[in-house]
Design a protein around this nucleic acid. Sequence first.
DNA 1: GTATGGTAATACGAAATCGTACTAAGTCAA
DNA 2: TTGACTTAGTACGATTTCGTATTACCATAC
Lengths: 150, 150
Amino acid sequence: MKTPEDEQASVFRFFTEVGIIQQLISTRLETMLPGRMGATQFGILGHLARRPDGETPLQLSNAFQVPKTSMTHMLGVLEKLELVTIEPHPQDGRSKVARATQKGQAFLRECTGRMSREMAPVMSELGTQPFNAALPHLQLIREALDRARD
Amino acid sequence: MKTPEDEQASVFRFFTEVGIIQQLISTRLETMLPGRMGATQFGILGHLARRPDGETPLQLSNAFQVPKTSMTHMLGVLEKLELVTIEPHPQDGRSKVARATQKGQAFLRECTGRMSREMAPVMSELGTQPFNAALPHLQLIREALDRARD
DNA sequence: GTATGGTAATACGAAATCGTACTAAGTCAA
DNA sequence: TTGACTTAGTACGATTTCGTATTACCATAC
């Protein structure tokens, strides 16, 4: 019979595991990224690559849950690396639009490819089953957490 | 029928979801932590609280996968807040031992309690089922990733 | 004993992160 | 049209993060 304390503990363990996995993955990823480019910057690039019309800095900072001012900085770095372009927003004079460049797309493909190759040993050990099994639950949890932030 | 590309995609989605959940949780946690104390610092405190004999900075930086020098800094901050003590290692003159103080333990309890209360609405919406269902898979994946880093 | 190689922590500096305060631009009611 | 209010982005500064180089200490061989 499970007590409420056990249940709370398993939720905390869940969050701990998520934190450790994220840390292991992003550390691994960052070793094969140039300079001090971090996992979040890389995520932004991937996000933009899937959206040909680009997004505004504010949309990005909402999507990645980082402060606006951090996003300003990150986009500036990505722009200097010529991986994204930042242009004035055509409809809103206050705003900007960030898009992935060709170079950005190529860079992204190259890194994801390298990442896949790096991860191959782990993947063949694990198979895709644990990932597929966990994914629906993660999505459920993420959606609830997302709704819960006011 | 699933292609290899689909499988790779679901693994990437898994990591994406993990990243987002981690971000949502740590942002939420950090709003109720004093000053600029981050989720990792808090994790260190929790880690130490479960180990009465303490750990060395190197053990901690391995456990949390952050550079040694970051750990030096974090522990310095936690020490200044009187949440941990840092003493010379009795057996090894090169090393140190970090332990959670009483104040640290109390602080931890207070924060985890507040966190639980904050999360109550989400928890009652989700129940513990998705967490318990995902946890074994996460552990499997984490262990494999952990072994895979040389 | 001491020389040599490895390990633990840190000093230092460069860059990232993010809170506060600000400017410019949009919105909307009167 | 105007004035109050809201919103998008950024300048600035405090702090964190982390790579490099350094110092102190341990272990082993000679």
